[in-house]
């Protein structure tokens, strides 16, 4: 007697998709500006600031994201004895993802900024632009165009990495897929989840491609 239909499987898995989307968009929204700040800190003339940022980036890129999620989630309790409500799961997930991705974006942005010829900054300086204007009007727009391909890679990885939130028992798509799979003793729900991730990434690639084309107006 098969009581679970394909429709049930899909709707169960889809019910976790909202949380997956939340992790995805929140991570992008927080990690990109944070990545820019970290890139600027990394390039700072102050050796203290730049070495601190460099060490942070090194740790965030050199240890597993899953480990970082667990540390962020349990850290407040084990380190400070603070008990946080269950809702903290999603908060810890978003913080963990955001700082981890910020580290990757920081290195991409730094490489992008440093690839802009120094003559651009010099021309801006002679024309009287302030440092802030030079960055926002001259360097940043050229940097954005150059970093689209590596950023696309990261965004695609992020779509798949959202599944790591299952380790904090966040009810996102992969957590549901695993539960349904276990209850049905079937791999089929995992394939369904795989299709969701794949289609999501097709969409991401399509959008990033469009963006890249739009920014190629001055080639």
């Amino acid at each position: 007697m098969q009581s679970i239909t394909m429709f049930d499987v899909i709707s169960q898995i889809a019910s976790g998709f909202g949380t997956t989307l939340l992790i995805f968009f929140a991570t992008l929204i927080f990690s990109m500006p944070l990545g820019i700040l970290m890139a600027l800190g990394r390039m700072s003339k102050s050796t203290i600031l730049s070495s601190v940022i460099k060490a942070i980036i090194s740790i965030l890129r050199g240890t597993p994201l899953m480990l970082q999620l667990i540390v962020v989630f349990y850290g407040p309790y084990y380190l400070f004895g603070v008990k946080l409500p269950t809702g903290w799961r999603i908060g810890a997930t978003l913080i963990g993802f955001s700082i981890n991705y910020a580290a990757y974006f920081a290195e991409i942005f730094r490489a992008g900024i440093q690839s802009i010829p120094v003559g651009q900054t010099e021309a801006a300086s002679v024309l009287g632009y302030t440092k802030g204007q030079t960055f926002s009007k001259i360097i940043f727009p050229q940097m954005v165009k150059r970093v689209i391909p590596p950023v696309t890679n990261e965004v695609i990885t992020l779509v798949k990495d959202t599944s790591l939130a299952f380790v904090l028992a966040v009810q996102e798509m992969f957590t549901y897929a695993k539960q349904v799979s276990a209850s049905m003793s079937s791999l089929m729900p995992l394939f369904v989840a795989g299709v969701f991730y794949y289609v999501f990434n097709l969409l991401v690639s399509f959008i990033m491609n469009r963006l890249e084309k739009r920014l190629s107006y001055y080639d």
């Binding site: 010829p117 003559g119 651009q120 021309a123 002679v126 009287g128 727009p141 050229q142 165009k145």
Partner: peptide
Amino acid sequence: LRRIKSHYGLVFQSFNLFPHY
């Protein structure tokens, strides 16, 4: 310095135009 900079201009060997403008 910003005010003084408006007294002079510089033309570079490698132009250094802003490519996105």
